[in-house]
Amino acid sequence: MASFVDPRFGVALRGFRERRGLSLRSLGQLAHRSKSHLHELETGVKAPTADTARHLDRVLDAGGVLAGMVDAPIDHAAEAGELRARVMASDVGKDVLDRIEQGVDDLASAYPTTAPADLLPLVRRHLAYVGRLLDGRVTLAQQRRLLVAGGWLAVLRATVHIDLRQRAAAAAHLRAAHDLAEHAEHAEIRGWCLETRAWDVLTQGDYQAALDLSRQAQRIAPQGSSAYIQATAQEARAWARMGDVGETRRALDRVEQLTANLPVPERAEHHYRYDPAKAAAYTATTLSWAGDPGAEQVARAVLADLDPDGDGGARPRRSASARLDLGLALVASGQPDEAVALGTEAVVSGRVVPSNWWRATELLAKVEQAGVPEAAALRELCAEYAPRRRQSADSTTG
């Protein structure tokens, strides 16, 4: 029976190795394993056997952590292991392609609730399988399905790299996603590539580039598609950051028209299927950035819907962002004390990903400008929870 492995095994192995100050070569000498085999374990290309995990545990004095990750019931790794066996044992069939596409949807649906460092090895592994299949003998129809699956996985991988602030890796995989989409003649993936680039440059402060990329995405993506709607919402955000309230409102009105009769998708958490509920969250963010007086009411409604019990709700990352949005709106309306409390909740939740951290620091700057005494405590928390302190062990450019 095949072993299952926690997708975080490679991250943990690398962490224990680096804390011991060992290179892959030196660990290989200690553990009597090849450098290439250890590299495959760390990058998630291969799953360790139970014996290998226990042996590495002893060598690295990992206290049973590595061994405990083997044989855990991790669905994605099980799927990947089965897929790999099928690829190696037989020609590509419909069942294999169906399973790959199901895996793409599973990963895109896991994106809102899974830590980027945990999701990255899973996406990387699935993308490697698709690449291996594309190297084999496939029909034209099978090839297109693989190209489309690879395109979705590549743009998702780029998004995760952006969340981890690994922008060189993100740019490389966005180019790959675009090329795959071009070969597959898949306009929506091309639109998502541009929209993702727009979000990335927006977070870096290049608002004009974000505006231009959002408009390009709208020209390329199919009218009314999720990519088209998201790009329109991204345009509104760019206008908000540029301080043009009129254009911001007009773009938001277009989003409202596009989503007015849009049904809730079967998997609302799917990152590439526009959920009408997202429209309210984007409106709250955008109006908060624009300093619009209507931001507070919308932001309160969004937070109440996402987190009715105050425990983070089913979508804790989105709930953390909603707290930051409401905080900005409250500062603008002269309520900085509550804004500090909301900022504190968002920061200590640990759910503000690195690419979104600038939103927490922006709220901190606003409450400090307002002269709120409690802002000093928020600054200390921001220093404690800043992602740069926690990302070094998880960072990768591959």
Rank of each mutant, 00 (worst) to 15 (best):
S319W: 02
S349L: 14
V352F: 05
G327K: 03
E338P: 08
V347Y: 11
R317N: 12
S333P: 01
L330W: 02
P336C: 01
V352R: 07
V348K: 11
A320H: 04
G334M: 08
L342N: 00
A332L: 00
R317I: 01
S319D: 01
G343C: 12
S355D: 10
S333G: 09
A332D: 11
G334Q: 05
G343H: 05
W358K: 14
W357L: 06
L328Q: 13
N356G: 08
A329T: 05
S333V: 02
A341Y: 05
A332W: 08
S333A: 14
V353A: 13
V340F: 09
D325P: 00
S349W: 11
D325T: 00
W358V: 10
S321H: 14
R318D: 08
R317K: 15
V347T: 15
W358D: 06
V352G: 10
A320Y: 01
S349M: 12
S349G: 14
R315D: 13
R323V: 00
G334A: 01
G334H: 09
P336Y: 09
R318F: 04
S349R: 14
L328F: 02
R323C: 15
V340M: 10
R323L: 02
L330S: 06
G327R: 01
R315Y: 14
V331I: 09
R359V: 00
R318M: 03
L330P: 00
A322H: 04
G327A: 13
E345M: 12
S349T: 14
P354F: 07
V331L: 06
D337C: 02
V352L: 09
R323S: 00
V353M: 06
L326G: 05
E338R: 13
G343E: 09
R351P: 02
A320Q: 07
L330F: 02
V352T: 12
D325M: 00
V331W: 11
T344W: 11
A346L: 09
V348C: 04
V347R: 08
L324Y: 06
V353H: 12
A341C: 09
R315V: 10
A332Y: 12
S355G: 10
R317Y: 04
V353R: 15
L324F: 14
L328G: 03
